[in-house]
Structures are given as structure tokens and as C-alpha cells.
Amino acid sequence: MSGHDEIEKYLPLTESTYYILLALAEPLHGYGVMQKVESLSEGTVSVGPGTLYGAFQTLEKEALIVKVDEEERRKIFALTGKGREVLRKQVNRLAIMVRSGSAIQFG
């Protein structure tokens, strides 16, 4: 069961972390991530460079993302297998949240 807990301990992800991982489903550099988060979240979430820099450091240390290339001082990151698994579980959790929330009549 250690493999299971290994993934669960990261959940739930914060909104920024969720979108950063989502953006890294394909390899991207930092600025690319910022733009993609903006579009994926339909403008509801933006990630500043201070926040992204810290997130990259943490996610790389936890081996959820990995540096795959470097272009003129810009590191290009991609999801690892572990990162993909964390993201998959998060999406499951979110699906449950949306399903249960949709059952309520608002207004």
C-alpha cells in the first residue's frame, strides 16, 4: 500500500499546482506554463513567476515533474509517471466534487 499513500499524500492539489501539472502534460518552459494555465483555466487562474518558480522547485524535488531539456536558460519540464498518476487521482476527486455539487439546486 505504500505506493498508494505515496500518491495520496499530495492530494488535494492546490488550484495552481493542479493547473501547472495539467499544463505539463506536454513539455513546456516556464512562460509556456503561465500562458497555458491562463487558457486552460479560462482566465480564472493565473500563475505569477514567483509562484511558478517555487512550484517548479517543489514539484521537481518530489519527482512529479522532470527537466527534459533546456533552451537559453529556460528549463523545459514534463510530467513524470508519478506526476501523471497524481494528476489522474486529482481529476477523479474533482469529478466526484462536481457530480455531488451538481445535485444541488442553486437559486
Binding site: 516556464g30 512562460y31 505569477g48 518558480y53 536558460r73 529556460r74 528549463k75
Partner: peptide, 22 residues
């Protein structure tokens, strides 16, 4: 905007590039 970041020479270029790109 002020960030507080003690020197990290190895990471500095990457850090700066990220801010400048934004």
C-alpha cells in the same frame, strides 16, 4: 514587487529568466 530570496547562484539565471519572460 519584492521577493525575498537569499543567493542561489546556480538557479539565478533560471529564476530571472522566468520573471523577465512574464
Amino acid at each position: 514587487r519584492l521577493d525575498f530570496r537569499p543567493a542561489d547562484k546556480a538557479q539565478w539565471q533560471e529564476y530571472r529568466q522566468l520573471f523577465e519572460d512574464a
